[in-house]
Design a protein around this nucleic acid. Structure first.
Length: 420
RNA sequence: GUGGGUGUAGCUCAGCUGGUAGAGCGCCAGGUUGUGAUCCUGGAUGUCGCGGGUUCAAGUCCCGUCACUCACCCCA
């Protein structure tokens, strides 16, 4: 084998599995298009400052997981570790905030983080990203959450839950943070955790270790210390979700690793995925636009991990999008028939029928085997004997029946049989 | 960054206490010089992850290394 392999933590998506990848991406994004969200593409790399200022210097993502490099012009660029900051940068750069609000956008694409690979965690992964910018309305929070949920349900997923909480805002979070810091300072924690408590005390709350959790049972929770406006916002979001028929569980210890989240915060957790169980998540962010030099507007968004969602689909045994193959196949015998076969295949395709033929030297048996594998229901066999008679043999694979059809009528006949 | 497991054919894996590499599936061909999916027969494909050591002899034992994988951490 060659010593050239896909980089650590990356993988290739190949047929037939790639059909599942396309189908999942399509199903997850269809609800967004139905809800009036517009498609956006932004660069895969951005000025490093977009993420440093947007995602937050204190986050693990920025402080140790970014693929940053200096280009030949001396610019510091970074492969995007998530899509939200780049979309927000575009929102500001093109002054979309000056138009009708909210601005509803979606995107899908690659993101990169330098992490230790694990089940469901890759250095290159694909996210569907959705943002509704410029309006702070709990109904909009609920819409986004419901759209994410709809995507999962359309895939047939059932063994997951929506975890929901509120992270407060600029007025109540600092107060709560002090309370929590004070509480944590009295606990018996290892040095790593202590350091984490200083950088972002909220993150200690979702530590998975039992001994840590045991100490946290009496920890103060953000939801108990929300300001009146934040409380009202959160209550309204939950009421809207109920009205939309979306179920959730309260997750007062839910934390997000990105600094910009405020108020509504949520995560979809799948139950059969091992430790990387979050298949999507997001929340509202009040400070992100301003942090990137834009106007002080609020926004809400979420990201769905396409790769993890595929793992969830497989874990639930949902057989999505088996490769359909082609509808028709042409088997030529001899050089003369071969050029006719190429022509017929071209005509079939132009007529909207998916079709294929054999390439390379194959005997009839091998060619029929290829026809079988192609999934074609209708197979045209043309040999010298048929050419002399001016016909092709049209075979229905399921029944084995075969009839002679005049060459001039073959394409129409196949199309009539195959297309509704 | 820390810890556990695993590396043998395209895939899934077997290979006992060291004796010179196998099965099933898949692929190709023949049986059927004009017919697939079944059946029968045959064939191709391996630096046994890599490097070093012990030994007459290493897939097997020892050391190192890399990769994959799972968990912590982190998060989609």
């Amino acid at each position: 084998m060659s010593d050239l392999v896909a980089p650590k933590g990356t993988f290739d998506v190949l047929p037939p599995d790639s059909a599942r990848f396309l189908a999942v991406r399509e199903t997850l994004t269809a609800p967004l298009r139905r809800a009036g969200y517009g498609y956006v593409e932004t660069p895969v790399f951005e000025d490093t400052a977009v993420f440093a200022r947007g995602v937050g210097e204190s986050t693990d993502v920025v402080s140790k997981e970014m693929y940053s490099f200096t280009d030949k012009g001396g610019r510091s660029l970074t492969l995007r570790p998530e899509l939200t900051a780049g979309l927000m940068r575009a929102f500001i750069e093109h002054r979309l905030y000056a138009g009708a609000l909210p601005v509803k956008l979606w995107s899908v694409g690659s993101a990169f983080r330098y992490e230790r690979p694990q089940a469901g965690r890759y250095r290159h992964f694909t996210q569907v990203d959705v943002e509704a910018l410029g309006v702070d309305d709990p109904a909009l929070d609920a819409e986004l959450v419901a759209l994410a949920d709809q995507g999962y349900r359309d895939l047939g997923l059932t063994d997951y839950e929506l975890q929901l909480t509120s992270l407060g805002d600029a007025t109540c979070r600092p107060q709560y943070r002090e309370l929590l810091t004070d509480f944590l300072s009295r606990l018996d924690l290892d040095e790593d955790t202590r350091r984490r408590a200083q950088i972002n005390p909220l993150r200690v709350l979702d530590d998975k270790r039992p001994d840590v959790q045991a100490q946290l049972v009496d920890a103060p929770l953000m939801v108990d210390h929300l300001s009146d406006t934040t409380r009202a916002h959160y209550d309204a979001v939950r009421q809207h979700l109920t009205d939309l028929g979306v179920s959730w569980v309260e997750a007062p210890r839910l934390v997000r690793g990105l600094d910009y989240y405020t108020k509504t915060t949520f995560e979809f957790v799948h139950h059969r995925l091992g430790s990387q169980s979050g298949i999507g998540g997001g929340g509202r962010y009040d400070g992100l636009s301003a942090a990137l030099g834009g106007p002080d507007v609020s926004g809400i968004g979420y990201a769905v991990g396409v790769d993890r969602t595929i793992l969830a689909v497989q874990a639930e045994g949902l057989d999505i999008a088996v490769e359909p193959g082609v509808q028709a196949f042409v088997v030529p015998l001899g050089a003369q028939a071969k050029s006719l076969a190429v022509t017929i295949v071209g005509q079939l395709r132009a007529a909207g029928v998916s079709a294929d033929t054999v390439y390379g030297d194959r005997g009839l048996k091998g060619a029929m085997k290829a026809a079988d594998r192609s999934g074609a229901g209708q197979v045209v066999v043309i040999g010298d004997r048929d050419l002399a008679a001016g016909v092709g043999q049209l075979k229905t694979m399921a029944t084995g029946e075969q009839v002679a059809v005049p060459l001039g009528e073959l394409v129409d006949r196949v199309r009539a049989t195959v297309l509704p």
